[in-house]
Write a protein that binds this DNA or RNA. Structure first.
Ligand SMILES: Nc1ncnc2c1ncn2[C@@H]1O[C@H](COP(=O)(O)O)[C@@H](O)[C@H]1O
Length: 1062
DNA sequence: ACTTTTTGCTCC
DNA sequence: GTTCCGT
DNA sequence: ACGGAACGAGCAAAAAGT
């Protein structure tokens, strides 16, 4: 626990105010960390202007730490910072969070309209024409009509009415845009006659609305301030970072945490952390702060002593240390920058060499590593070697470190072909080379072989690094339920790259857009950097630890710290290391291999080179157990081993445990060591989409199955442990325990007496207690996510249980659903509105299924889930992870909502979409206002070929600035604007009220527009003109005709629109 | 203080 | 979440 | 059929911006 969760704004004498973490020193004064102090001369320190107790009890803290308040003087730390004291305070009081944040997010900042709700209708004239460059404060007031109980599905109304006079920030761009703006849309559109039957909308109804419209039209003029976001506009907004693991971890009680992190013994760990910390906080010897050139080297050696050894999970409480690191790093950065300048020219020359792997541009490349490798649309690969060669390390690499490593080699020898030696730390470069080889190969089998080879070397030479290597290959740092989050994404990584290379942020951005991959940018920018002092080669361990450290950092200015740590890592990268490091930070390795293949690779590696064998005898006997197998038996063996590994992992998705077990007992011991255990969330069974009832019957032909409602909520895996504690996990194994105190407190009445432990598979759904009905997902999602206080819960939840996979110490995974369901109903007690069993029907009649589907929709559900009861009805994910079928209206060719929308913008594609658009901005048409209002972005449903075509056909219609009659929010400004020409048919699952889209604004909701849930491209409507696109009022009608909305507005008598609430 | 931006192995 | 693609 | 990688909306939280 760190005091980092406490931050505030300091009034700094003579300087700008700044935010910082707040600490207490041993004299009880509010102090700043040494690093912060390093930047701000002590003499400038001022007082606290504002402080934030992120989500913890305010009054208690106020009382316990009176000095931590507004107006307190901030001093330099005297005698060290008193971090643990505050930390403990937070830890103890898990509840009573009085949370300051009621603030409604009216984050809407429309580029054009400023919805203001006062009745002040007058002021606006025909702003349209005026369009003077900018602003026009226009106080438009789209007044909301209360037509129907507009308080939609119970979605909270944002109270804040913000006068909407958002001052347009004009940018230079405006001038140019003016031209476009001026053309009055009226003329152009005047003739349009929206008719064209929309598939579902009532076409003509629109006309009738004239009165209403009129009202809107005249009184609700939207002022158009073309406050356009210039790209240039501070794209460099300051860095930020989301917090990280520590806070999530904090949210669970110590007890729970312990039970979760099985593999690491916390006790030991904490001791270490504690002792380390104390030694630090006391003195923090100046000597230790000597500036360091080779940051990474230092830190890795440090970690070596204290952290990631032996599966100890690194403690997060390392603030002091990281601060020290930074002082060193900063110095280093400066040096780098200087050098970087004259380097720039060179960079530019080199860059173009890269070719991007993009649709339609296949580049035949023979992987230099894989002999006879499959060719694959390859990313590129600049001559990593050339430039790098020139800057040969000044510091000699450690023995055994070799720049080339080829895990794709045939007849790979785990010892001889490795680039490092026994008991050495695995070089990060070896991992990078492995990833590189995999990325260059498209064959999954070959990929797994490559990865397996790498793992064979790791597990025999450096077994301690196996777990870390696995994590890095998957872009993870810990099991999901431990909540370790990096808190860094694109924006911040770009900043770090800019810092590391000395190039401008804008350049990085434009490069990234062109390359479609920040990793490539990081690598190519890097490769020309020459450093005077060559950092030591990175090791897997050092990188992992650094990332974990980044994740553990929270609090004010943490993100600046994170960036600088990342910068130091990037600076130390050679060859392709930077590419993968950057991608790791972005959370996407995109090498064409992920978890499933990795598990198989582990299995192969363990078969060929058993990890559990005696390593004291060197070389070990079994290095290639596949040598004498025929290809067939080998394949069968792989399959068999993979099943063991995969099933173990599905039951116990924790690499700490899995790898440890493998190293100790090999694949055969997994069954015992990695099995289903309450407290560790197993992977959930997923479902496959089906095209219709007929499709379902066909797939389950002759097999007994059941149909259940598919509830629209979120999956909740409820664990009851032997010790009586209850944990709740999400579909992705995130720990949601603190999100559902209400479920937990009432759970006891839902179980029958003999239940001592269990794991339930359920859906948590928002529930309207009064009307006793299901509320839409959008309502559910407004619940607090962590540390929810039961007394303050506004959105109630009903649990719909549909499966039971563990009961009283016994795993039910192998039992068929019919038995599991029986046990579920037998041992649990339904409580209306709180905990019920999923509605189901066991039938094989087409008609009944069809009817049940209709019913489910009427009951505010998404459709049906169809599951086999007897045959192939176990919960064994390793056999097939998607055994269930899902049937939704929108999967049917005939069903679902579909709209004809106008394409008005395009977004550059990334990754495999580099060079084409990756997505588009779509709008519906409002004939009354004669404007196009955005309704959604669209990025799926088209084939690569269609995408290419669209990119081409829209190219001629690119315009420099949006038309004045485009209503959009600056947040979704596309890379290219288009003249409205094409109409596309788009299908969706639902329509929702949007915080950013403007479609039908004011018609279904006073301020929010409408957007589409799960939009996908269906086809080009070249038979339609843009004026024939779906109209705003049709959109509004579609929204209103949804069951969920109808059901909520219907019998809702009281509640009255909160419209004239103001 | 209040508002905006950024993030999330997102919850869907 | 949906969809498409290569194996 | 599988695994992977493109892409969607939208929320709360965290941290930065003003
Ligand atoms: N009766 C049900 N059985 C299984 N899953 C359900 C059921 N009702 C709702 N669901 C949810 O539907 C999800 C699967 O649908 P999808 O994510 O669209 O593939 C699961 O993760 C559950 O959260």
């Amino acid at each position: 626990m760190k005091s980092a969760s406490l931050w505030g704004r300091i009034n700094c004498k003579g300087q700008h105010h700044f935010n910082s973490n707040l600490y207490l020193d041993y004299c009880g004064n509010v102090a700043l960390s040494s690093r912060r102090l390093g930047k701000i001369p002590e003499v400038n320190l001022g007082v606290i202007l504002y402080r934030n107790y992120s989500s913890k009890n305010k009054s208690l803290l106020k009382q316990k730490f009176p000095k931590m308040k507004k107006g307190s003087k901030v001093v330099a730390a005297a005698g060290g910072l008193h971090q643990t004291k505050i930390g403990n305070f937070f830890k103890r009081d898990a509840n009573g969070s009085s949370e300051a944040g009621e603030m409604e997010s009216s984050k809407k900042k429309l580029a054009v309209s400023s919805p203001k709700k006062e009745k002040a209708t007058n002021s606006s004239e025909a702003d349209e024409e005026m369009e003077s460059p900018k602003e026009k404060l226009a106080v438009s007031s789209p007044k909301k009509e209360k037509t129907n109980g507009s308080s939609e599905a119970g979605v909270k109304e944002s109270p804040k009415k913000k006068l909407a006079v958002s001052s347009p920030k004009k940018e230079k761009a405006t001038s140019s845009s003016e031209a476009g703006e001026m053309e009055s849309p009226k003329k152009k559109l005047a003739v349009s006659s929206p008719k064209k039957e929309k598939t579902n909308g009532s076409s003509e109804a629109r006309e009738m609305e004239s009165p209403k419209k009129k009202l809107t039209g005249s009184s609700a003029k939207k002022d158009k301030k073309e406050e356009r976001e210039l790209q240039s506009k501070q794209s460099d907004s300051k860095d930020k970072n989301g917090k990280a693991g520590s806070s999530k971890a904090r949210s669970s009680t110590g007890k729970k945490r312990r039970s979760e992190s099985t593999s690491s013994d916390d006790g030991d760990n904490q001791e270490k952390a504690a002792s380390k910390k104390s030694s630090k906080s006391n003195g923090k010897p100046e000597a230790k702060r000597q500036r360091r050139r080779i940051v990474v080297e230092d830190s890795s050696s440090e970690e070596e002593v204290a952290s990631e050894e032996d599966f100890k999970v690194k403690s997060e409480a390392e603030d002091e240390e990281s601060e020290e690191d930074e002082s060193g790093e900063e110095l280093e950065e400066e040096e780098e920058e200087e050098e970087a300048e004259d380097e720039e020219a060179v960079e530019e020359e080199i860059k173009p060499k890269r070719k991007s792997k993009a649709i339609g541009k296949k580049v035949e490349v023979k992987s230099k590593n894989t002999k006879q490798a499959t060719t694959k649309t390859i990313p590129e690969k600049t001559g990593n070697k050339a430039p790098a060669q020139g800057s040969k390390p000044a510091v000699p690499p450690p023995k055994g470190w070799k720049p080339d490593y080829n895990p794709a080699k045939n007849k790979y020898h785990p010892i001889d072909d490795a680039s490092w030696e026994k008991d050495q730390r695995v070089p990060y470069l070896a991992l990078a080379k492995t990833l590189e080889a995999i990325e260059a190969t498209s064959s999954r089998l070959k990929n797994m072989e490559i990865l397996a080879n790498f793992f064979r070397s790791v597990l025999i030479l450096s077994p301690d690094d196996l777990r870390l290597s696995v994590y890095l290959c998957l872009n993870k740092l810990a099991p999901a339920y431990e909540g370790v989050e990096l808190g860094v994404a694109e924006t911040n990584v770009m900043k770090a790259i800019a810092q590391a290379t000395g190039r401008s942020l804008d350049k990085i951005k434009s490069d990234a857009a062109a390359a479609g991959d920040l990793g490539i940018v990081a690598e190519s920018s890097r490769s020309t950097q020459k450093t005077l002092f060559q950092p030591q080669p990175l090791t897997v361990q050092a990188v992992f630890n650094k990332l974990k450290e980044v994740a553990g950092m929270t609090g004010s200015a943490s993100h600046a710290k994170k960036i600088s740590m990342i910068t130091s890592l990037l600076v130390a990268c050679k060859y392709s290391e930077a590419r993968y490091l950057a991608r790791s930070l972005l959370g996407k390795l995109r090498i064409g291999l992920a978890e499933q293949s990795l598990l198989q690779a582990i299995a192969q590696a363990c078969f060929l080179t058993p990890p559990e064998q005696d390593r004291s005898e060197w070389p070990p006997k079994k290095l290639d157990c596949g040598k004498k197998c025929s290809a067939e038996t080998l394949k069968a063996k792989f399959e068999e081993e993979a099943y063991k590994v995969k099933s173990a992992f599905c039951e116990c998705p924790n690499y700490d445990i899995l790898v440890k077990a493998l190293l100790e007992v090999g694949t055969d011991g997994l069954r015992e060591k990695c099995k289903l255990t309450p407290g560790i969330p197993p992977r959930p069974m997923l479902a496959q989409p089906t095209k219709g009832v007929a499709d379902v019957l066909e797939r389950f032909d002759g097999i007994k199955f059941t149909c259940e409602y598919k509830y629209d909520g979120e999956r909740a895996q409820i664990h009851l442990l032997e010790d009586g504690s209850i944990n709740i996990y999400s579909r992705n194994q995130e720990n949601n325990t603190s999100k559902y105190p209400d479920i937990i407190s009432r759970f006891s009445k839902c179980i029958k007496g003999d239940v001592k432990s269990c794991i339930l598979d359920t859906e948590a759904v928002a529930w309207d207690i009064e009307k006793e009905q299901i509320l839409p997902f959008q309502v559910l999602s407004t619940r607090k996510r962590k540390d929810a206080d039961e007394a303050e819960i506004k959105v109630q939840v009903c649990i719909f249980a549909f499966d039971l996979i563990y009961l009283n110490g016994e795993s039910l995974i192998k039992k068929p659903l019919i038995e599991r369901r029986e046990l579920l109903r037998e041992h649990f007690q339904a409580v209306t509105g709180e905990f019920v069993f999923a509605t189901s029907v066991d039938t094989d009649s087409m008609e009944e299924v069809q009817e049940f589907l209709e019913e489910s929709v009427k009951g505010n559900c998404e459709g049906l889930m169809v599951k086999t009861l007897d045959a192939k009805a176990s919960y064994e994910l390793a056999k097939r992870s998607q055994k269930w079928l899902k049937l939704k209206k929108d999967y049917l060719d005939s069903g679902g909502d579909s709209l004809d929308l106008v394409v008005i913008g395009g977004f550059n594609g990334r990754g495999k979409r580099t060079g084409t658009y990756g997505g588009f901005l779509l709008a519906c048409y409002d004939p009354d206002e004669e404007v196009y209002q955005t309704i959604c972005k669209l990025g799926t449903g088209f084939s690569d070929e269609q995408l290419l075509k669209h990119t081409e056909s829209l190219k001629p219609h690119i315009i420099p600035n949006p038309k004045s009659y485009y209503r959009f929010n600056t947040q979704l400004t596309p890379d290219h604007w288009f003249d409205a020409v094409e109409v596309w048919e788009v299908k969706c699952a639902d329509l929702s009220l949007s915080p950013v889209h403007t479609a039908a604004e004011g018609m279904a909701d006073p301020q929010r527009g409408i957007s589409l849930r799960f939009p996908r491209f269906m086809r080009l409507r070249d038979d339609k003109k843009i004026e024939d696109a779906t109209t705003a009022s049709q959109v509004a009608d579609m929204y209103k005709s949804q069951e969920v909305v109808k059901n909520s507005t219907n019998n809702k008598k009281g509640i009255d629109d909160d419209d004239d609430f103001y």
